[in-house]
């Protein structure tokens, strides 16, 4: 911890604030992931950790390294941009896969095939409907 004394107080305070903000929001999202009732509610919860959770900690890291190295440290923007781009894509794919599984197994509470326009679901149904019955979990 030699570098922590080098950091002036006007930089240490925002760093601490953004660290606590980001980690607290990540913890809130994880608690929501644990406590929500159904999958379609749960899929919303971790996005709290990937938007402001990652954003707060990356801003704290940018402030800390910018002041420590006395030049702009902008490489954290790389992680921020990547997380912001990839999280909606992966969670939307996961939600569509879960919706497809619920439809093929005739679980209640999800809209039927006809309720939505046929995209990839329509062409996927005849091929793998027999596999889904045997796989279960």
């Amino acid at each position: 911890m030699t570098h922590a004394a080098d950091l002036p107080a006007w930089a240490a305070l925002p760093t601490a604030f953004f660290l606590l903000l980001g980690s607290g929001l990540t913890l809130l999202g994880a608690i929501g992931l644990l406590r929500f009732g159904s999958f379609y509610e749960r899929v919303h919860a971790p996005t709290l950790g990937t938007t402001w959770g990652a954003g707060g900690i990356l801003i704290a890291s940018m402030i800390c390294f910018t002041v420590l190295q006395s030049r702009p440290a902008l490489h954290e923007i790389l992680i921020a941009a990547f997380v912001i781009v990839t999280t909606p894509v992966s969670l939307m794919l996961l939600a569509r896969a879960a919706l497809y599984r619920d439809r093929t197994e005739n679980n209640g509470g999800v809209p039927a095939f006809e309720a939505e326009s046929e995209g990839t679901d329509g062409e996927a149904s005849p091929k793998s409907s027999d596999q889904k019955q045997t796989k279960g979990q």
Binding site: A12, L13, L19
Partner: peptide, 10 residues
């Protein structure tokens, strides 16, 4: 002072 703030928040 700033070291204490930083260590505890981390």
């Amino acid at each position: 002072m700033s070291a204490t703030i930083l260590i505890w928040s981390i």
